[in-house]
């Protein structure tokens, strides 16, 4: 593994996760080491069932590790993080709230905001509108979720994950359920947001092009028990465009990673 970086924002050391009891349980993750620097964008790829989602829930403190230590922002994680934004394959919007109220939801919960939300509601709504504008949904603030397309819902979900300006954004296959065109469009949206705000992102995906297009560093995991087998830096300059994804360097990297994964599957 790479040299230990003391500045790492997210740091996992020899982490195991075992579901069930320790002797006979299913090992989902084994000896996982991960260092994510503040403001960086990393991707975790691997065959399905390799414990990628366990990794997500682990880093956000939603499940405790069976062994090893996890630190976020130099503090050990021993409960839900409170500073993370999360988005999943399923947009999980609240159907009884319109777009604006859906993305205001984090402010009703996160500690620093919930107290002064009433007083500063207008200011926060402006912020929400600004966020909606960056993802191209300004005109849909008053729409109900059922009036939005799948891609639009996923944008709203992304806005909700970013509304409280989290330091850490966790994305669990956020674009997997979308059609190819919408997915590629949203890569651009996400990249733009990240370049503007520079939050730390951990993206779990099994789309290699997506991982390479978006991230600075890719971790390849082996199948059960999940283990990080390769780290790969992605050196291409930002911003990356869709046409970059067809350039020889890019294609070669996709192929290289694909070969690693097919080795892992055997």
């Amino acid at each position: 593994m790479s040299a230990t970086n003391e500045q790492a924002f997210v740091k996992l050391k020899n982490v195991d996760i075992i579901y069930g009891d320790n002797a006979s349980g299913v090992k989902a993750l084994e000896g996982t080491n991960l260092h994510v620097e503040k403001g960086s964008f990393i991707a975790v790829v691997g065959p399905s069932g390799c414990g990628k989602s366990s990794l997500m829930r682990l880093v956000t403190g939603l499940i405790p590790p069976s062994a090893g230590t996890i630190k976020v922002a130099n503090k050990p994680v021993n409960g839900p993080l409170k500073i993370a934004g999360m988005a999943f394959q399923n947009p999980t919007l609240l159907p009884w709230r319109n777009t604006l109220d859906n993305i205001m939801l984090p402010l009703e919960i996160v500690d620093g905001y919930r107290k002064d939300l009433k007083r500063n509601r207008l200011k926060y709504e402006e912020k929400a509108y600004a966020l909606l504008e960056t993802v191209g949904l300004k005109d849909f603030a008053m729409s109900a979720p059922h009036e939005l397309s799948g891609g639009m819902k996923q944008r709203v979900s992304l806005c909700r994950a970013l509304m409280h300006e989290p330091e850490l954004l966790m994305l669990d296959e956020p674009f997997a359920a979308l059609d190819a065109f919408t997915r590629e469009e949203l890569w651009g949206v996400l990249q733009k947001l990240w370049m503007e705000k520079r939050f730390t992102v951990i993206l779990v995906t099994h789309d290699l092009r997506e991982a390479i297009y978006l991230s600075q560093k890719i971790y390849v995991m082996s199948s059960r028990p999940g283990k990080i087998v390769i780290e790969k830096n992605v050196e291409f300059d930002f911003p990356r465009s869709l046409s970059d994804t067809y350039k020889p360097d890019f294609v070669a990297l996709v192929e290289e990673l694909r070969n690693h994964i097919s080795l892992e599957r055997q």
Binding site: L62, P80, L81, K82, A87, F88, T92, V110
Partner: peptide, 14 residues
């Protein structure tokens, strides 16, 4: 209530 939505909220400190 979707477990993922619960995860989202809990990771916000709900």
């Amino acid at each position: 209530v979707e477990p993922e939505l619960e995860d989202v909220l809990r990771s916000l400190g709900a």
